[in-house]
Design a protein around this nucleic acid. Structure first.
Length: 385
RNA sequence: GGUCUGAUUACGGGGAA
C-alpha cells in the first residue's frame, strides 16, 4: 500500500481523479489492502479539488471497512473546507473529531487558524492559538507564520511584528517561510532597510535565498515606487542565478502602469514573453485593470481577448476589473454584458462585483436597479460588507 | 523514510489625504 500512495497522489495532483480511483481498485484486486493512509490520500486528493461530498463519503466508507479515520483524516477534511472558505463545516468537524476520541493536533489548529486568517478573521485565529496553548499544544513556526501573515494581510502590521517577536520569545527558530513573511510586512511598512537586513540575516543563517524572497523584495520596492531599486535588484537576481519569473514580471508591469509608463510596461510584458514565460491570469488582470480603470477600454478589451486566445481563462477578479472600468467610464450597458457573460461561464460574481455595479447604479440615480442587485446578491448567499 | 498545515504578483465601496 505504501507503493501505491504516491502513485494515487500523483494522479490526483494531475486532476485525474478517476485514474486515481482506478489505481486504488487495481491495488485491491492485487490483494493489497488499503490502509488508513491510503484513505487519507484519497481524502486529500478529493479535498484539493473541492470535492467535499465525495470526501465525506470516503470517510464513511473507511469507517465501514474498520479503518478508523485518524487525526490526519480529519485534518485533511478540515483543510478542504477551509480552502473553500467554509469555516462553518470546518469547525463542525473540529468538534466532531472529539466524538471519535481523537484529539486535535497542532496541525489541526494551524489549518483552522489559517482558514480564519484567509477570511480576515484574525480574532478567531488568535483565539485558536490561545486555545491550543491551553490544551497543551504548543504553537509552532507554522502557527506563527500563519498569524504573522494573517495580520499582515489585514494591514495590522504592528500585530504581525508582535507575533514574530512572540515566536522568538517562545524559543522557536524562524525558518525561510517565517522570515519571508516578516519581510513582506516590513516592506509593506516601507521599512526597506529592515527588510534588506532581514535578507542578510537569512543568508547569515544559511538559508538559501529563493525566487519568492526576491519577489517579495521586488514587489515591495515597486509598491513604494522605488522602480530603480527594483531594477537593480533584478540584476542581482540574475547574478544569483535566480532569473525573474512571471510573478516578478507581473509586479514590474503593475508598477510601471501605476505610474503611467505604458510604453515601458509593454516592453516588460514583451520581454517576459521573449524569455518564454507565460503570462498568467494575474498578469492579464493587472493589464486589464490598469487600462480599464483609466478609461483605456479598448486596450483592456484587447488584453481580455488575447488572454482567451492563449487559453488563459479569466476569473472573477478579471471580470471585476473589466466591469469596474466600464462602469467608471459610464458604460453600464457594456458592463452588464460582461456581468452576464461571466454568469454564463459559470463564474460566480462576488462581493466586489456587486459593489461595483450597485455603486454605479447609485451614481446614475437608478435606485430601483441598485436595490434589485442588492436583493439578488442576498439571494445568492453573498454576504455584503 | 514513504498520508495533513504556513511565505511572493491582480479587482470594489466608504473614510482620510
Amino acid at each position: 500500500a505504501y507503493t501505491y500512495n504516491p502513485l494515487i497522489r500523483g494522479f490526483f495532483e494531475k486532476g485525474l481523479l478517476d485514474e486515481a480511483m482506478k489505481l486504488g481498485e487495481e491495488m485491491e484486486t492485487r490483494g493489497v489492502l488499503p490502509m488508513v493512509s491510503t484513505y487519507n490520500t484519497y481524502l486529500y486528493g478529493l479535498c484539493e479539488h473541492g470535492k467535499m461530498e465525495d470526501a465525506r463519503q470516503r470517510l464513511v466508507e473507511m469507517t465501514e471497512r474498520d479503518l478508523a479515520p485518524d487525526i490526519v483524516s480529519y485534518n485533511t477534511l478540515i483543510y478542504g473546507y477551509c480552502r473553500l472558505g467554509n469555516l462553518k463545516d470546518a469547525v463542525i468537524l473540529f468538534h466532531e473529531l472529539r466524538c471519535r476520541n481523537l484529539v486535535p493536533s497542532v496541525v489541526t489548529y494551524n489549518i483552522l487558524a489559517d482558514g480564519f486568517c484567509r477570511l480576515g478573521d484574525l480574532e478567531s485565529a488568535q483565539q485558536l492559538k490561545n486555545e491550543m496553548i491551553y490544551r497543551g499544544n504548543q504553537p509552532d513556526v507554522f502557527t506563527y507564520t500563519i498569524l504573522v501573515n494573517g495580520a499582515c494581510k489585514v494591514g495590522n502590521l504592528s500585530l504581525a511584528q508582535e507575533f514574530f517577536e512572540e515566536m522568538l520569545h517562545r524559543g522557536l527558530k524562524p525558518d525561510l517561510f517565517a522570515y519571508t513573511t516578516l519581510m513582506l510586512c516590513e516592506m509593506k511598512l516601507g521599512n526597506k532597510s529592515t527588510a534588506f537586513s532581514l535578507q542578510e540575516e537569512m543568508v547569515g543563517k544559511g538559508f538559501p535565498l529563493n525566487l519568492i524572497v526576491y519577489n517579495v523584495l521586488v514587489d515591495g520596492l515597486c509598491k513604494i515606487r522605488d522602480l530603480e531599486g527594483a531594477c537593480e535588484l533584478l540584476q542581482k537576481m540574475v547574478c544569483d542565478g535566480l532569473p525573474p519569473d512571471h510573478v516578478t514580471y507581473t509586479s514590474l508591469i503593475h508598477a510601471h502602469l501605476e505610474v503611467g509608463h505604458l510604453r515601458k510596461a509593454r516592453e516588460i510584458f514583451h520581454e517576459m514573453l521573449l524569455k518564454g514565460l507565460s503570462p498568467t491570469v494575474v498578469t492579464y488582470t493587472v493589464l486589464i485593470h490598469e487600462h480599464a480603470d483609466r478609461g483605456r477600454l479598448a486596450l483592456a478589451f484587447m488584453y481580455f481577448s488575447e488572454m482567451q486566445e492563449k487559453g488563459v481563462l479569466p476569473n472573477v477578479v478579471t471580470y471585476n476589473a473589466l466591469i469596474n472600468g466600464f462602469c467608471k467610464a459610464r458604460r453600464l450597458d457594456l458592463a452588464y454584458n460582461f456581468f452576464n457573460e461571466m454568469e454564463e461561464k459559470g463564474i460566480v460574481p462576488n462581493r466586489y462585483t456587486y459593489t461595483i455595479v450597485i455603486d454605479e447604479n447609485c451614481n446614475i440615480g437608478n435606485w430601483p436597479e441598485a436595490l434589485r442587485l442588492y436583493r439578488q446578491m442576498l439571494e445568492k448567499g453573498i454576504e455584503p460588507d
